[in-house]
Simulated scan of single mutants.
Amino acid sequence: MVEIRSGHSMDIVKLASEVDRLQRLATDLMLFADGHINISADAPILHNWMRTSRSAACLTGMVWDHPTLPGGGRSIITSDLCLLVEDLGVARTNSRWYRLGRPYGSTHSS
């Protein structure tokens, strides 16, 4: 996740690294969908493994105009947060862009 805070300059190296990571993920998933497994013989081996869950950065709030959720003002928790730029009022999750309205506890109008 890349966060660009108000009053701070963007870390272009960190952003480029995240872009590269996501491009490699997308490529691997597309290859798999086409019937190819793009895995190196040097890939780590995971023994004694099991499925589990963990916390991940995300956003929660009331959403309007969501493309797959009906109605407005629905309370949601987004997918994993990849990019948050408060100054521009935007966030990118694993699944989509969001325009940011008022943050929680704000008395300012959007």
Rank of each mutant, 00 (worst) to 15 (best):
A26I: 12
Y98P: 01
S109G: 08
M30T: 09
P44I: 13
V19E: 04
M10N: 05
R74S: 05
V63S: 01
D20P: 00
S53T: 13
A33K: 10
V2Y: 04
G72P: 00
I76W: 01
A91Y: 05
N38A: 08
R92A: 07
I45D: 14
W49R: 13
S55Y: 08
D34Q: 15
L29V: 06
M1Y: 11
L84P: 05
D11W: 02
T52R: 03
H36R: 11
C58M: 05
K14G: 13
D42V: 05
S55N: 07
R102K: 12
G73P: 05
D34I: 00
G61H: 09
I37F: 09
R96G: 12
L88W: 12
I77E: 15
T107F: 03
L15V: 03
S53R: 08
T27A: 14
R54A: 13
G101D: 09
G72W: 12
R5N: 09
Y104H: 15
T52W: 04
L25D: 12
Y104R: 14
V85Q: 03
D65Y: 04
L100I: 02
L59A: 02
I45S: 14
H8F: 08
T78G: 04
N48V: 00
R21D: 10
I4H: 08
F32H: 02
S79A: 12
C58G: 02
K14F: 11
S75Q: 12
Y104V: 08
S106A: 06
M10P: 00
S79D: 03
M50E: 12
G72N: 15
D87L: 01
T107H: 01
S9W: 13
I12E: 10
M1D: 08
M50Y: 09
G72F: 08
L25M: 11
N38H: 08
G89Q: 07
G71A: 01
H8G: 07
L84T: 06
C82K: 14
T52L: 00
V19A: 11
G7R: 08
D28M: 06
S75K: 06
D80W: 02
G35V: 06
R99A: 03
D34M: 14
D65S: 07
G71T: 03
G7E: 04
P44Q: 06
S79G: 10
S79Y: 00
F32A: 07
L46H: 15
M50T: 01
S6Y: 12
R96F: 09
A33R: 06
E18S: 04
G101L: 05
I45R: 14
V90W: 02
A26W: 13
V63N: 00
R102A: 10
I12W: 11
G71M: 03
V19G: 03
L84F: 11
K14W: 07
V63Y: 02
G61V: 11
G72S: 14
D28V: 15
I77C: 15
K14Q: 15
P103A: 02
M30L: 06
S110D: 14
Y98W: 09
